[in-house]
Each structure stands twice: as C-alpha cells, then as structure tokens.
Design a protein around this nucleic acid. Structure first.
Lengths: 168, 168
DNA sequence: GCATAAGGTGTTATAATATAACAATAATTG
DNA sequence: CAATTATTGTTATATTATAACACCTTATGC
C-alpha cells in the first residue's frame, strides 16, 4: 500500500513535501516536453502549501495575492487543467477541490481519506483495492476505465481529540 | 454482492423499478413518520424514469413541465435533500447528479458503475469492498465514517458496441 | 373545533463553481 | 525573422447550490 497518510497526519518537514513535488513536476514536464510556466508552478506550489484540498477560488485569491494583481478564473482553471492532465494533482469531486498528488506516475487508486474535522486528505494507492474493484466491474461486465474513491472520516489526530474523555 | 447492474444494463420492465421504488419510499416514510409530499414523490419518480443520474436543473425542467408551472431551484433541492436524508436517492459528486437508490436500508457501499457512453449508473453494495476499505482506513488509523466510490467506464452494452469490428 | 407549533412551500436574490469565446502575447520552429 | 503553436488576458456567462423571509398546510394539545 502506497500512501502519504503518515506524513499528512503528523507534524513533518513540509518543505520537503513541497520541494519533492516541484522537482517531480519539473522532471515530468521535461520528460513530456511541456512547459511548467510561472502560473502553473505557482498553482502547484499553492496546492502543496498544505495537505488540505483547495478550491479553485481559494487558489484564485492566493494566486492574486501572490503575484499582486487580479487573477481571473480561467487562469486558475487552465493551470489546474494542465496539472490534472499531467497527473500532478487530483480533483476531489465531492469537495470541488484540488490537491497535489504525492506519487504521480504510479499506479493509482484515486483513493483519498478525507478528514471531516481538519480537512486534510491523504492519498492511498493500493493494488488490492484496484484488483477488487476490477473484479467487481468484471462480474458486471463493466469495462472499468477510471475511478474516484473518497473516504470520509476522522484522521488519527482528530480521532484522538474526539475520543478523548471530556470534563463533563 | 448486491447490485442492480443487470437490470440497468439490459432491457427490462422498468415500470417495476419505478413502482418498487415508490412503494419502498412510501413504506420508509410511514415507518419514519415523515411525509412523502407530492413534490417529493414527483422528484423521486422523475429520478426513477431512467437509470441515468439527473442534475438538479434537469429535474427542475421536468418538474415544471409535469406540474405545468415554473419551479424554482429551492423546490428541487429541498426535495432532493429530503430524499437523500432518507437514503432513497444518492448524489453522484463527480456528475453533480442524483439517482434513485435501488436498495435503501441495506448496507451500502456507495459504489457506482457509471457508463461514460450512455450515462447509466448501476449501484453495487459489496461487503468485500466495504471490508477492504475499512481495512485500508484502519491501517492508517483513519476513522472511516462514509464513502463515495465512483467507477467510470463502459457498461456491457456500450462495451460491445465499442469493441465490435468496424467497417473501415 | 381551535389555537398553536411544526413542517413544508413559494419567491427573490445571490453565492460558489466552471466554461466559452476571442483578442493579445510569448515561445518555438523552420 | 516569418510563421506557427502554445499560453495568457479579458469579458461574459453557464451551471450548480444556498440563504432569507413570507406564506401556507398539516399535525398536536387543549
């Protein structure tokens, strides 16, 4: 099972997450012979500022603040589209939000564990999950092409807080 | 594995789907002591007119046509909210669309197989899937509360058409 | 039965998310 | 360096969803 769950749910050197993501992005763009322009890189950076998915309009605000001039929605959506196409980020449909992918190029499950409390989202890639869903599809003669799997609940930290005995 | 896939993907007596859904709804409302008002029942009926998820604004149009007077969005969304709360319908996040639930009251997987071609969506409830996802969550100490699983691909019918040899 | 409360609907306005279309600019290629 | 291609800017608008408040209908207690 490939996952960034531990990283996401514990204090860690987040600068490393960011720089790793950026160097992966640069490598991938070079390989694919496409351009990681300033805007695209900035949007990717912004998405990697935390492990919480961000909406397009949050990105718009942050981007505008960053470059110190107004940004129109298409600018953001184009960058997102580009990053999505390369697999550098994911869209989480039930949140209308976007998040950096911690392991692009790997076999994906497109599976996220999203904390209802703190909003963090950890990604999981798991062969057993993929296999089982392939099997479910096969049984119904359904030709599986892609998937989007979202688990909602409480991350370890928020679970502990919630479960802790109160003072009542 | 509990699924309506065969029904969805083959010609069938759809009137039975509709009437079954309605009687389930009536039973559930009686049991829960809530009211299946005209609007709510109509929205449920409309959702059951096919096995394709419908958007809120498609429902709005159809509803307006049906009762022969304009309908405002809140009317639709209120009915949807009610039906969702009772588990009579599901929302499919990546489509922003709604669909009738073929087996409310059962253990759910919230797993849909959605045809990219014809748009039909079959639901699957599978203990193995639930168990595996529970296990994935456990391994990360994630307290699973709910899930949304969407498989995209081709239904059996559309697979056949696509795979059939062409005339080129 | 009737007053009251609770639940449901109508209506208007608006928020939040996303895309279309076209002009302008920058980068790449021959 | 001209021509092509890719990218960005800009304006407008589509799509999905909700807030707020007035009004009406149904259930409930007396």
């Amino acid at each position: 099972m490939l996952t960034n769950a531990k990283l996401v749910h514990q204090p860690h050197d987040h600068e490393r997450c960011i720089s790793a993501a950026l160097s992966r992005a640069k490598a991938l763009c070079a390989e694919q012979n496409v351009r990681l322009t300033t805007t695209r890189e900035l949007v990717l950076r912004l998405l990697w500022q935390s492990h919480q998915p961000l909406g397009a309009y949050q990105l718009q605000d942050q981007l505008a603040e960053h470059i110190n001039k107004p940004v129109a929605p298409p600018t953001v959506y184009r960058a997102l589209e580009f990053l999505l196409r390369l697999g550098l980020i994911h869209r989480i449909p039930s949140l209308n939000a976007y998040i950096g992918c911690p392991f692009p190029n790997n076999e994906h499950s497109n599976l996220f564990m999203i904390c209802n409390q703190c909003g963090t989202a950890a990604e999981v890639a798991d062969k057993a999950v993929n296999k089982l869903l392939q099997c479910v599809s096969d049984r119904s003669h359904f030709t599986l092409q892609s998937q989007s799997l979202e688990l909602f609940g409480l991350c370890p930290q928020c679970s502990n807080i919630t479960e802790a005995p109160g003072y009542d």
